[in-house]
Design a protein around this nucleic acid. Sequence first.
DNA 1: CTGAAAGCGCTTACAG
DNA 2: CTGAAAGCGCTTACAG
Lengths: 366, 366
Amino acid sequence: MSRIEDVAQAAGVSIATVSRALRGLPMVSAGTRQRVLLAAAELQYVASPTASSLASGRTMVVGVVVPYVTRWYFAHLIAGASEVLRRHGYHVLLFDVGGEGPERPMLLESRALFRRVDGVLVLSLRMQATERELLSNLGVPVVTVGVPGNGWTCVRIDDVAAATRATEHLVRLGHRDIAFLGGEPADGGDFPTPADRERGFVTTMRRHGLDVDPAWMLSTDWTAAGGLAAASRLLRGGRRPTAVVACSDELAIGVLAAARSLGLRVPQDLSVTGIDDHDMAAVHGLTTVAQPVNQQGRLAARIMLHEVAGKEARGSSAGDAGDAGDAVDAGDAVAGAAPGSPNQDGVVEVDSELVLRSSTAPPAVP
Amino acid sequence: MSRIEDVAQAAGVSIATVSRALRGLPMVSAGTRQRVLLAAAELQYVASPTASSLASGRTMVVGVVVPYVTRWYFAHLIAGASEVLRRHGYHVLLFDVGGEGPERPMLLESRALFRRVDGVLVLSLRMQATERELLSNLGVPVVTVGVPGNGWTCVRIDDVAAATRATEHLVRLGHRDIAFLGGEPADGGDFPTPADRERGFVTTMRRHGLDVDPAWMLSTDWTAAGGLAAASRLLRGGRRPTAVVACSDELAIGVLAAARSLGLRVPQDLSVTGIDDHDMAAVHGLTTVAQPVNQQGRLAARIMLHEVAGKEARGSSAGDAGDAGDAVDAGDAVAGAAPGSPNQDGVVEVDSELVLRSSTAPPAVP
DNA sequence: CTGAAAGCGCTTACAG
DNA sequence: CTGAAAGCGCTTACAG
């Protein structure tokens, strides 16, 4: 466990020079740098991150906050963000708050994040007002996936458009009796996805002059089991829809299972669409609206890196928390073009696209 | 962003006393503690983790290394470990190395982990010898799930027993023509799961005097898509097995899809078993050998905490890396009974159990 | 029970 | 281009 002083001694220079040489700063002669590098390698020296952080004020750590690690969507966001962050020398501090709603057991607290990270990535998490405030007061950039507002940059798909695509597809195939299976109570809070997808469905139906039967508007948790249960109820009813727009592939896979167990053939007796393009969607032949989840994670991470760099360049000295509020703009001005281009609300939208498989077909002629 | 000195001033005591009072150390009078707590609350003081770490030598961070975050098994391990760690005040530094094999792109390097964590959790990762050595030289406890050896404590199920359970079940139902779908080339390296499961299958078949047809021993990556592809080949063959033992539920779900697409009924024409009890297993009616994945993550984390505590109590002073080699034993001696009881190889085994659903039945009478 | 002081191992102006 | 020194914000013996 050699310290910087050991390296300095071995190389015959001061610790300041070692520090500069090892971090690749200019203002070090080639010869000196060479000697320092050699000495460091021989001593297997690695700078103490804790000491560097204390002295420099940056941690090289980004906090990643998620409601779940175990769900497909979140795992893929994490993977995407993590890869970009690691590639740029940043570490990932994972906060799994273990639940969706704002009244979940584990809340964000300042002792967890404060001075521990250079930035925070919030992934599709519905938060309490106090949590949002806490994040804003942290003094570091915050970037989200799926949570617009609060002055933070947000990466997301157009959820209205995604649901519209699925619905349009079914309508064009000739379906008129279409049910909707939503992901959860669309409470319209700071996480607009459920409400947006519902709106996309309803608006599209109305535009085509089709009825939206309240009894066919279902919602459940975002799981295949939930989809199975809800669809079983729906499909056992006397009058049956000929198609179901499910708000996620996991829900859709539940619908497929329900259909199978009731002896309904897909797509002959029932068409089903999902949203996501889950790993298992192809195996189930599921027609779905694919969204680039990994890419959204990567993009959010890149924007984060950009904002951190911008904040740094703006010249907060160590210990000065700076102001995260305008990190986006400042970042743009200081460190080149931002990746993706946020609109005036700070939202960067990525595209979703319909993927045709075997779970959809024209309705049977009655 | 108040510092400890602000609190000291406000409370009219020294910074040493603030430090003690806030951390709940004894040797602080009730009145003083009261005043300090009040002052700290008013100033919204939170100690700088970076400064604490530098001074104390502990980071309150545990590194969690995984080949993937996106797969069911790993996500659930992470979730379990993370919850225990967080509940005990530890943070989770996530290292997604992005691949299974020892020749994956992202290797563990000392600059990533060195002095950055108080311990490392390695989750079912096949490593290079240099990586294992690196971890051992880190000077902090290492606990694994699924990777025995190296002097580290390892949590796992008995994979031989798991595969045996599935095979026994099918044999008892009367199957004699059983195929095996393994997870990957069983290379017998430091990650014994694939080879163990294969052994459980083969041994059980032989014990019952049943043939193991090499053409029916398949393997692929651990995905449903891989299972679908492999099973499609298998089931199109002239002579068909009446049952398939798949090494994971995702593989098994792929087999189910293959059967469906070939018009084979499950379980009438083909019985299928998995291993895991994946979230989607129930929805697919899959008979499987359930393993408690979340619990393995939790257990590994608890053992880790225990070893960290033991190491601490053994009295390494700040900066002294201590010796992780005997952390297990020392932990036991110092900090009470260890959670779970490692055998002489340092392995803690948790139980798996057969879960009967609708994907298995006696073979059709020819 | 409390405080003064050393020290953790770096980075960063400031001089030169 | 290089070094001496201050400082980052805590914790921890050591005295008292």
